[in-house]
Design a protein around this nucleic acid. Sequence first.
DNA 1: TGTAATGTCTCTAGTGACTAGAGGTTCAAG
DNA 2: CTTGAACCTCTAGTCACTAGAGACATTACA
Lengths: 138, 138
Amino acid sequence: MFSIGELSKRTKVKVPTIRYYEEMGLLAEAERTGGNQRRYDKAGLERLSFIRHARDLGFSIEAILSLIELQEHPDRSCQAATEIATSQLTDVRAKIKRLRALEKELVRMSKGCEGDGVAEDCYVLASLADHKLCNRQH
Amino acid sequence: MFSIGELSKRTKVKVPTIRYYEEMGLLAEAERTGGNQRRYDKAGLERLSFIRHARDLGFSIEAILSLIELQEHPDRSCQAATEIATSQLTDVRAKIKRLRALEKELVRMSKGCEGDGVAEDCYVLASLADHKLCNRQH
DNA sequence: TGTAATGTCTCTAGTGACTAGAGGTTCAAG
DNA sequence: CTTGAACCTCTAGTCACTAGAGACATTACA
């Protein structure tokens, strides 16, 4: 059994975040010492690692709740889990696509201006003021 | 002179968002009718278009405030504008990099599971539970 | 000119996933 | 037994909006 600080160290999840996860129902309510401090065991550690891993991959709290629910019913079909992962993948790909378009536009903007002139002639500012100067939609 | 709703239509920025931008100091306080409703002119329209364009490119409100400040002092050096754009570009590139790593991991995860088994054997869940199953850091 | 529909006003509160801080209590080491 | 670090709960703040309540203004049409 170890404290919340120890759990935090081992999982690299900050202490207030652990408490927040408990409040959100991602973590079961921890056992308490006589003095009301949380104590965790291996199961708690594994659960938090799972959560952190999923968060790192961009899953929302809500999605993680569903995944945990599934985890706790090993007999259920895992279709939902695959669906959540696939939807996350679609999301990620959409974001990448959008960011790539932004990247191109920003490169074009930055290249147009050396930063050595005055604001009046700044290509960055001009580009922002007039969308027509852009090559692509965003 | 036109109303906030008209401005909203022309710029595709929602009415409450326009009011929010005003409160944040991105838009000058609008003129008002006798009945206290906001009225805008061409200058207001251009300013909001600028803001929307910058937001679309991912600039923060704070960054846009700086850009607007520059815009209003056309005699100042535009170095700051270029710096803001470049920093935004760096940001965007970092995000793309990270998302690409996530994408790879999610593909690997999804491929490992057809979604036709039970949760106990689900590769998605297993991957989340055990980071060691991952190919790369994220 | 009357009325009804639509638009606008301010204000408060909610979103997601935390983060920061106040003010108080408990624990572990020496 | 004392000290200081770690812990507790609670509230409020972050970012960029979004939603809703309840009241007032404007516009279109009869």
